[in-house]
Write a protein that binds this DNA or RNA. Sequence first.
DNA 1: TTGAAACCCTGGAGCCACTCCAAGGTCAAT
DNA 2: ATTGACCTTGGAGTGGCTCCAGGGTTTCAA
Lengths: 160, 160
Amino acid sequence: MRIGELAKRAEMKTDTVRYYEKAGLLPPPPRRHNGYRDYSTLHLERLAFIRHCRALDMSLADISHLLEFVTRPDVKCDAIDRLIDGQLMQVQTRIASLRTLESQLLVLRDQCHDQKTAGECGILQELVAAAHDEGCVCHSASIGETDATNYPSPPRDDQD
Amino acid sequence: MRIGELAKRAEMKTDTVRYYEKAGLLPPPPRRHNGYRDYSTLHLERLAFIRHCRALDMSLADISHLLEFVTRPDVKCDAIDRLIDGQLMQVQTRIASLRTLESQLLVLRDQCHDQKTAGECGILQELVAAAHDEGCVCHSASIGETDATNYPSPPRDDQD
DNA sequence: TTGAAACCCTGGAGCCACTCCAAGGTCAAT
DNA sequence: ATTGACCTTGGAGTGGCTCCAGGGTTTCAA
């Protein structure tokens, strides 16, 4: 099948398919006489796998490791374990820091009591004041230090 | 003060300070005879504000809006409200999707029962199988569709 | 037969919020 | 005179795509 059909069946954009090929996650398919890529269902399977892992918020590097395991079933299993465990820890750390963040924002939102202008706005006053506070979010270690990875966003689903 | 001292007191890198200037968040300071930037405490205050908002995971665009409000205290306050509310909703949506993700990963981790090789690894089998499943994470709308923004990571705190 | 629409190709730029580097200038202390 | 710590600029890199320009190909209908 051509790239358009493959992309549609894998529910992603053709650009993304080509990107995965360039990134080394999808093996380059044979070409037709006109230069068009010609995919098989094996490619579709691989793409489905990648998509599933991306939905689990794994990085392309991690997925690449997993794909190696898929093609070489004789290696030890514990690397896979560790990969998933690491992923889980990342997610849990991120949830914890987002919860701190949420409570900060809730406090902030309650500062505004129907004032009319920015000069009277409690949110803004709070933000300006808090920036000096040694005990505030940006000085405490509750955010940032515990989650210093470049955390990937989940894939979008709006490719129709 | 020079950029090094400013950066140290604002707890960020000199690169970041220059980046904020180029991005229009920090007004360009006067220069000394040798071309060095010469900052005042006003710049430090502004940087503290930016840093605090970044710790609340706001985008530079949002912070830019807030900074406009700070300098023009006569505008209406509800835009600030909406900004914080939007931020809060983003965070809550993200928490929800990460929770789904966490449970998926927990299921996945329990698939591995001390097998030795990747070929027998339950995690991998589950991943391969789940990729075909219409009801799995990557096909359901629970992740991705509800959080289709390019969500920024919180700033790192490892600049010492 | 002509033409339009729907595909395909490549390479390159853009997004965000930095981070790092190279190549050079400046300044104080030794 | 030289070392080392600072400063300057511009440009490239990160991840994971997404979009675009400028071209070629195929398929369908009028």
